[in-house]
Design a protein around this nucleic acid. Sequence first.
DNA 1: TAAATTTGGTTTATATTATAAACTTGTTTA
DNA 2: TAAACAAGTTTATAATATAAACCAAATTTA
Lengths: 96, 96
Amino acid sequence: MLPKLDPLLHSELRLAVMSILAGVDEADFTYLKKQTGATSGNLSVQIDKLTTAGYITVEKGFKGKMPRTTCRITPAGQEAFSNYVEALKEYLSTGK
Amino acid sequence: MLPKLDPLLHSELRLAVMSILAGVDEADFTYLKKQTGATSGNLSVQIDKLTTAGYITVEKGFKGKMPRTTCRITPAGQEAFSNYVEALKEYLSTGK
DNA sequence: TAAATTTGGTTTATATTATAAACTTGTTTA
DNA sequence: TAAACAAGTTTATAATATAAACCAAATTTA
């Protein structure tokens, strides 16, 4: 039977965020917004969910005088992302 | 920028159904139910959506006296599934 | 320097979606 | 013939994603 997909990662925007964070050391809010094309509100909410799940960490600081939100993937997040990718592969490669 | 994922396929159960149908000539309702572990209601609804989208066809007949619902993937469905897989790959293989 | 605009978000409301629960129709079996 | 089962469908509810509205501080412009 096909494996269950982590519902936290099976969301277009959250997956996009995780995908980006998996490839870089860190990324800030505005960068993620540009890369994903998401609205601020949506991105803010999804970042919250990933943070609550322990998949990413958020650090708030300033770049000059402007606020800056920096995100990083956690080891748990890397692990979950990797598991999700493996699970998904079973959906994509059908017996045929 | 990451490609948009077909929302019709970006659903665990619908993706599972399409994944199964992509690999076989046909599959009936009960088979799909067993393979996916879904409830009848959920499966019924998702099959409807895939049918409306033109991704699968549904043929109703009888096996002996019992009703039987047979599903098949359409060329449009194969195409959409394949596009989805390609799009998804861009999410899974991050720059790193 | 006051008003308008932009930046970098958060909160709240709405629309969509997935899921489960309840129901239907007909068939077997005890 | 009553109870249980098969194969679904319909409807209601819960969860989710998304967008709209809002906010505070900083910056630009008149």
